[in-house]
Simulated scan of single mutants.
Amino acid sequence: MKARITVTLKNGVLDPQGKAIEHALSGLGFDGVGQVRQGKVFDVELAETDTAKAEADLKAMCDKLLANTVIENYAVEIA
């Protein structure tokens, strides 16, 4: 079973890397780019066949390692 986890900063958390990307895009001539926020994507392949168990495991992975839940949100998609 394949899954994708997307981790992004919560609203209100400063994103200096996103700001740097926004500035660089402007410098490259891409006008009209609004706010840029950066994040992380994890593609995970699981041996688990039970979707509910896989989702629970993926959320536990995020809570324990993949996301800092104080400043980040995450979304889990199972393919």
Rank of each mutant, 00 (worst) to 15 (best):
M1P: 03
V13S: 07
V36F: 06
E45Q: 12
Q38R: 11
K19A: 09
K64A: 13
A79W: 14
A54L: 04
E48V: 11
T69V: 13
L65G: 12
H23M: 00
K53C: 06
D57R: 14
C62E: 03
L58R: 04
V70G: 03
L14P: 05
F42G: 02
I21K: 04
V76F: 02
A20R: 08
A24P: 00
P16Y: 09
N11W: 10
E77P: 01
F42N: 01
I78T: 10
V76R: 03
L66K: 08
Q17K: 09
I78S: 02
T69A: 03
K2W: 11
E55K: 14
I21A: 09
T49K: 15
N73P: 03
T6P: 00
N68T: 08
G29P: 06
Q17E: 12
G27L: 10
V13Q: 12
N73M: 01
T69S: 04
D57I: 10
V36W: 03
A3S: 13
E45T: 13
A3P: 02
T49S: 12
N73G: 00
L28R: 11
K10R: 15
A3Y: 03
E72N: 04
V76L: 05
I71S: 08
L28S: 09
G18K: 07
K64D: 13
T51I: 14
K64S: 14
E77D: 08
E22T: 07
V41S: 08
G12N: 12
M1E: 07
I78N: 05
V36A: 06
D31I: 07
K64Q: 15
L9A: 04
G34F: 07
M61T: 07
G29Y: 09
V7L: 03
L25H: 02
A52R: 15
A56T: 15
D50L: 07
G39P: 01
R37A: 01
A67S: 09
R4D: 04
G34L: 08
L28H: 06
A79M: 09
R4G: 00
L14W: 13
L28D: 09
A79S: 11
S26C: 01
R4T: 14
S26Q: 13
Q38D: 07
D63Q: 15
V7F: 01
V70A: 06
F30W: 12
A3H: 02
L25I: 04
D31A: 10
L58N: 04
T49L: 10
G12I: 11
S26E: 10
K64F: 07
A79V: 11
L25C: 04
E77K: 11
H23Q: 06
L25T: 02
V33N: 05
